[in-house]
Write a protein that binds this DNA or RNA. Structure first.
Lengths: 136, 136
DNA sequence: CTAACTGTAACAAGTACTATTACATTTAAT
DNA sequence: ATTAAATGTAATAGTACTTGTTACAGTTAG
């Protein structure tokens, strides 16, 4: 799993969960994560596309959770971040001559799908609310 | 999980499992994967360090499994590949001012450790023998 | 003693990730 | 209305990571 993007998204969502009704600007969020505000806005854009957050433009604008933190599962965040990669197929082109080479991608895909299913089940056991409550 | 290296290692080991007593050269393996032989030798070096394969230098040299394929679990391969990363800590430095920023790494680490444990359990359910047999 | 390998290091090329700059657009508040 | 503070997004630059290549010393079979 792409640790960086998942971590950033979870960090963002944790801040929003704790902010409640208050909107947070990309600058405030970026300060906590210590990354560039534009990256935050990009991740927010993705999370928005997945329906997890909403944003208000203009002065005093910012972002907030689009549904209660108890209804957001960590698996949702994983999926939001990995949506793209899941579709992207591997670029390696093993030999079509070799019996292993020509079948390996199919078998790897099958294996990865199973692993991912397990991983999602595991992540679905924790909600954003539960995660955010850890911070006291 | 770093798909590329895991895929390469599993590919290598599958070839070796099917080769039985016959040694395979890095060139033969590279041809099946369609990557550079030096990368194969690097991965073999790592797998050797983990005790999964052994190699013989010199003419007619090559590599072979260091234990029966039925005693190699896919989790062993995962661990062999990720040994380094597991130790490498994240380079992101969140704000120490923010209550979320200053604790997030600890919580993320805890979460990732749990996820990884699950993942290993899942991978431990399949042996290299079983995986290799799929290729008929 | 030669040919065919491995093992490694050093470097190059390619790719992906992250940061930065820039700016059009939107909205709140005065 | 005008200004100030945001978002949204594109384009570009810089950096880091991955993969490929070259080179060569060491090893072993025949």
């Amino acid at each position: 799993m792409n640790n960086t993007r998942f971590s950033v998204s979870l960090h963002i969502l944790t801040l929003l969960a704790r902010a409640g009704d208050e909107l947070l600007s990309s600058e405030q969020i970026a300060a906590s994560i210590n990354i560039n505000p534009v990256l935050v806005r990009k991740e927010l854009g993705n999370l928005r596309k997945q329906g997890l957050v909403a944003s208000r433009e203009g002065k005093n604008g910012g972002s907030y959770l689009n549904k209660p933190a108890r209804d957001i599962y960590l698996s949702d965040i994983y999926l939001a971040v990995h949506q793209q990669e899941l579709l992207a197929k591997s670029k390696n082109k093993p030999s079509t001559q070799c019996p292993v080479g020509k079948q390996i991608n199919a078998h790897l895909t099958h294996l990865y799908n199973n692993v991912e299913k397990t991983l999602l089940t595991q992540l679905a056991k924790t909600t954003l609310r539960k995660f955010a409550l850890q911070f006291g």
